[in-house]
């Protein structure tokens, strides 16, 4: 409820700001990849905001390339941006830049990938450590894994902040129970990901008690992998990201027991709204935490949300 109120308030402010001021220029900078399915929804949120408010939003992706992103952020500051909404490619990588933006009086909002070490005005998005913890707890609470079991965690980009944080969160639940896990490299290429995941599942299906998809692409590939290997839906419980239509359908069909919704479009929209609000003189003194874990009963709702794109 609080989350909804916060979202409602922010959107309201965002719509009000442009009506009393001239169109401004904002920068939306992502450390993700333009071809990552979930980032397309984040991008759609930013584009929708530009359309709704009449402001200009300059969007860009840096695919984990920290120096390029830093250079672009500095360029946006030099161009006297009215506001910047940015993800953090690595914790600590934007500390100096956030200071420079602050000195130039440019509001900088952090979204999706949190970095508490940098002096951003606010953060909008999920908490990956908490998500990982929740997924592990869900598996334990629903008796899908028990002490001594083994959980397989495929991820598209091993070592990337999101997967590391999620595994870190999961470990707080698994370690005390003696549950073991393994993270494997699936890659961002879907055909290759399906091939690698099928290989792993064929070789290890006897020891895998549950699967935790650390990214959207891997969780959204579960149906194809199960079908390829001949694993029946539900015979190995799967939990993980759920920001794509593939995953909502997998939840509905019983391949995935629960999936994490992150409000990607709303996250971008609210981050830009907060930047606009700050540019108008009202500084946000709060963060907006998004995200919900959904199961079969609610998957239809999220499928409908995603189908609008």
């Amino acid at each position: 409820m609080l989350k909804k109120l916060a979202l409602f308030g922010c959107v309201g402010i965002a719509l009000a700001v442009p009506s009393v001021s001239q169109a401004k220029t904002y920068y939306w900078m992502s450390s993700g990849s333009p071809a990552d399915p979930v980032w397309t929804y984040f991008l759609a949120g930013a584009e929708q905001w530009a359309k709704d408010t009449g402001n200009t939003v300059k969007t860009s992706f840096y695919s984990g390339d920290v120096p390029s992103q830093q250079e672009a952020e500095r360029a946006a500051i030099a161009a006297k941006a009215d506001g910047i909404a940015t993800t953090s490619p690595d914790p600590g990588s934007l500390v100096e830049i956030a200071k420079e933006a602050k000195a130039a009086n440019i509001p900088m909002i952090n979204f999706n990938m949190r970095d508490p070490t940098a002096p951003f005005l606010a953060y909008v998005g999920g908490d990956n450590v908490v998500f990982g913890q929740n997924w592990a707890q869900y598996l334990v609470d629903h008796h899908l894994v028990k002490a001594g079991d083994f959980v397989w965690m495929p991820v598209e980009v091993p070592g990337a902040t999101y997967g590391v944080q999620e595994a870190q969160g999961a470990s707080t639940v698994f370690k005390p129970l003696g549950i073991k896990w393994e993270i494997t490299d699936a890659t961002l290429d879907q055909a290759d990901a399906i091939s690698r995941m099928s290989d792993y599942l064929t070789a290890n299906h006897r020891k895998i008690n549950a699967i935790m998809g650390l990214g959207d692409l891997v969780t959204g590939s579960i149906k194809r992998v199960f079908d390829q290997v001949g694993i029946k839906p539900g015979s190995i419980p799967v939990i993980g990201w759920g920001n794509t239509l593939d995953t909502t359908q997998e939840v509905l069909d019983g391949y995935v027991v629960a999936a994490q919704w992150q409000d990607p479009q709303a996250t971008s929209y609210v981050a830009l709204s907060l930047a606009a609000m700050a540019a108008g003189g009202v500084r946000p003194g709060f963060n907006v935490i998004t995200g919900a874990l959904y199961d079969k009963t609610k998957a239809g709702y999220y499928a409908k949300l995603l189908s609008t794109k």
């Binding site: 990849s33 071809a35 399915p37 961002l188 290429d189 879907q190 055909a191 399906i194 590939s221 194809r224 593939d246």
Partner: peptide, 16 residues
């Protein structure tokens, strides 16, 4: 590949 995997992603084939 797109038919077999039921997916046509713009970044398919990276590194092939």
């Amino acid at each position: 590949s797109s038919i077999r995997t039921s997916a046509a992603n713009p970044d398919s084939g990276t590194g092939y």
